[in-house]
Each structure stands twice: as structure tokens, then as C-alpha cells.
Amino acid sequence: MTAGYLVFLLSGWLFGVPLGGALEIIPRRRSRRVPLAYSYVQGLIDYRGTIYPVFNLAQRLSLKVRDRIGFSAEEEQGGPEESMLLLEVSKNPFAIEVDRVSRMTKFDALAPSPAEAAGVDVQYIKGLAYEQNDEIIILDFERLFFHGS
């Protein structure tokens, strides 16, 4: 079944989020610090009346930064750099900071994830998609940020 995804770049890796869970792309903004929060929580923002926790996805995934050798033309002309994505899973709104929003696209099916991709634990990966010689990692945000909370 074909599904739409928003693809973004973070630390040199491409990730995808289902369009149904993507609320808005906004410029990065300062968040309000929360003492004693989880280490990957940057803070809270108030955007149009909704409070969003801001998660540092790179830290949560312990991402190793990699240099991408060349961007596709679409990525070069893609969305604004250093954006904030407002997302929602299971009625929990949240925000993540990304290096660049790359594109919207559709995938017919996801490939099963290997033991790890980008050094990310397989339990946080829903699957992989391939497009234009790019490997795109589809994350399980519920498990990443809300599992057990």
C-alpha cells in the first residue's frame, strides 16, 4: 500500500515520518528548559496554543554524524535549514529539530530493517525505504519517545 512520508536530514542521515503524523514545519525557536527531564528533552515550546516537548532526536538515537557526499538537486533546493518539525503520535504532540527538510514522497512498501541502520537500535526502526539511491530510515517515534511513559 502506498503511503506518504516527509523526509528529513539529520546528522547526515535521511529519516522519514508518515505524513499523517506531521503537523507543521516551523523555524527553530528557543525552548523553555525543564529541569530533571530526560537528557534528550531540549525543553517545551508553546506554538499556537499547544505545548510541544522538543526532543533532540540525534541524542536520543546516539547518532553518529556522517558527511553525506553530495546532495540530490531536490535536497539542495529543499526546505529551510535547521527547521523544527511538529509531529504527533497517539495524540501526543511533540517537536524535533532537523538539519533540513528534504522532500515529501511516497513509498509502496518498507523493507524490513537490518540489525541496525545508522547505528540506531532496530527496535526504533519501523523499516527502510529506498529512493534515488538514498536509504531512508522510518522511525518508530512512539517507541522512541513515549514507550513506558
Partner: peptide, 19 residues
């Protein structure tokens, strides 16, 4: 309430948030 996923819900330091 403090949004889910921010901190361990058993920590007792905050009652909630307001704007």
C-alpha cells in the same frame, strides 16, 4: 500536566505547567 515523554512520571517535583 507536563506533556508525556518529558520526564519520569514518578518524579514528584512539578504539579504541571501553565502559560
Amino acid at each position: 500536566p507536563i506533556p508525556q515523554g518529558v520526564m519520569n512520571p514518578t518524579l514528584p517535583y512539578f504539579v504541571g505547567i501553565l502559560k
